[in-house]
Design a protein around this nucleic acid. Structure first.
Length: 233
DNA sequence: GCGACAG
DNA sequence: ATCTTGTCGC
């Protein structure tokens, strides 16, 4: 468990930003992961006009079978009153608390976690994926459906094609824009914690089925927004 | 001052 | 994020 406060969800925006600046220095960008046996996907959804926050974690066994199908080892959903409103750049203060509560109920500990959102592809280099990884003390990868910051060209048309996402005056590489499916808008992959960009891209690519999102993220997405049982209520 | 802006 | 039917395509 971390010593200094890695998270405080009662902070005013300016204090939250100050905290992010301090924590950014602790985010590790080099690989430091154990052999992967379990991979988790995390996502947050909302109910009742945003009043209820719904965190979902799906635990998958690695590797998948010959057909690329992953075995779901565990599944957790945690609901709680929403803490604060969405502010670009401060997403973790809204979503991490619920995600942590969901993780506490897990029986299995994963060696890698894919988070719906940015990792270091963030103004202060600490998006939700990095922040959650720091708190959980686990390797994480950020998988986002759109851009928060940075510049990039158009990735090639083939599945797996990608272009770097750069930011700052010195064109620092903070992530990759990946064509996960042909003829579909690309996704944004970035290192969260303890993972390099090449490794992040490698894992995301290996978890791609025939869908736009990698399996861990896709399944967590589905569970968080109830797209699985929504019919018949 | 004017845009941009993960989920 | 969420509200939602049909429709186009493999």
């Amino acid at each position: 468990m971390p010593t200094a406060p890695l998270h405080d969800w009662n902070l005013a925006p300016r204090d939250a930003i100050a905290l992010q600046k301090r924590l950014a220095g602790r985010v590790e960008r080099a690989d430091r992961l154990a052999p992967v046996r379990h991979l988790a996907g995390v996502d947050i959804g909302f109910e009742q006009d945003g009043a209820i926050t719904r965190a979902a974690v799906v635990m998958l066994a690695w590797p998948p079978d010959e057909d690329g199908v992953f075995k779901v080892v565990e599944q957790v959903v945690h609901r709680e009153p929403t803490r604060m409103l969405y502010v670009p750049g401060l997403l973790s203060f809204r979503e991490v608390p619920a995600a942590l509560a969901a993780f506490e109920r897990l029986r299995v500990t994963p060696q890698l976690v894919m988070v719906d959102g940015q990792g270091i592809a963030h103004p202060r280099r600490i998006g939700v994926a990095s922040h959650l990884g720091l708190w959980l003390d686990l390797p994480t990868i950020g998988v986002a459906k759109s851009r928060l910051c940075g510049r990039h060209g158009e990735p090639g048309p083939a599945r797996g094609d990608w272009t770097p996402l750069v930011d700052g005056p010195d064109d620092e590489v903070i992530g990759a824009v990946l064509r996960s499916r042909v003829k579909v808008k690309p996704i944004f992959v970035s290192p969260g914690h303890r993972v390099s960009l090449p490794t992040a891209l490698d894992w995301v690519t290996r978890c791609l089925g025939r869908t736009k999102l990698p399996e861990p993220t896709r399944l967590a997405d589905r569970l968080a927004s109830r797209r699985d049982q929504k019919r018949g209520e």
